[in-house]
């Protein structure tokens, strides 16, 4: 599904990623762990098309060159990023934003757009599945949301947009234990044979709830070790410093 070959990235002449390789197949959950400044967020930004990086290497998504596409085109193809810091957009109702988003994607895919009733049904169902309070959806997008509410909102958006590849950027940071459970259940419900997840995290704790198939350790812009779920536990014990 996703193939990254020798990816290098620079910002302001500083090299962040220094030759990263990764393959993700449908049905897999990958976790990338690494200390601050190892390039975790850069990777998620590059996969979703944020501007400002000098990029070398090759990234394909379903055999298509991903790097050529605009951010919204990548979203249309089914790539979703749960932001580490979801943006506040004043005056814009969350529901309206979601509806605009889902219909933009459906339109790009040549699917029939949802009318107001279909959309509301979908929202109701997804909120219920995730045990979300729907009230949050009638508020302005992320404005005045608590950290936990913002993250939950990202997961709800993910479940509504039903992406092929979901990237979770530090989704667990700043969450209390209850919110963490809600977020993990959201991911586990969505997980199936046709989609894949890339979980980017500093800590192991999310991985107690969402068991990954593969764990990769990112340090100094490269994956220095890959393994199964046990690798995360090791890492937690040793810390990044002594890990080599």
């Amino acid at each position: 599904m996703l193939s990254i070959k020798n990816l290098r990235a620079k910002i302001d002449n500083k090299e962040i990623l220094k030759g990263l390789n990764l393959n993700i197949n449908p049905g897999e959950v990958h976790a990338i762990m690494g200390p601050n400044g190892s390039g975790k967020s850069t990777l998620s930004n590059i996969l979703t098309g944020k501007k400002g990086y000098e990029i070398e290497g090759e990234v394909t998504f379903e055999k298509e060159d991903l790097l050529k596409l605009e951010p919204e085109e990548r979203a249309h193809k089914g790539i979703f990023l749960a932001f580490q810091y979801p943006l506040e957009i004043p005056g814009v109702n969350t529901n309206i934003f979601l509806k605009t988003s889902i219909n933009a994607i459906k339109k790009a895919r040549g699917e029939k757009e949802l009318d107001a009733i279909e959309f509301l049904k979908l929202i109701k169902k997804k909120s219920a599945d995730l045990k979300f309070d729907e009230k949050i959806l009638s508020r302005q997008l992320n404005v005045g949301f608590s950290g936990g509410e913002k993250k939950k909102n990202e997961i709800l958006q993910m479940s509504i947009l039903n992406p092929k590849l979901a990237i979770l950027d530090e989704t667990d940071s700043g969450l209390d234990i209850d919110a963490l459970r809600v977020v993990s259940e959201g991911v586990n419900t969505l997980r199936n044979q046709n989609n894949a997840f890339l979980i980017i995290t500093h800590y192991q704790r999310l991985l107690d709830y969402v068991i990954p198939d593969y764990v990769h350790v990112l340090k100094n812009g490269q994956i220095i070790k890959s393994g199964g779920p046990e690798l995360a536990k090791n890492l937690e014990k040793l810390g990044y410093k002594d890990f080599n």
Binding site: A75, I89, V92
Partner: peptide, 24 residues
Amino acid sequence: YYCKQRGLNSEEAISLIVNGFCKE
């Protein structure tokens, strides 16, 4: 970028944000 990541193109994103700005 956030709006685009959710599939909106530039003009849609701007229209959405500007309408939010004008909502009152």
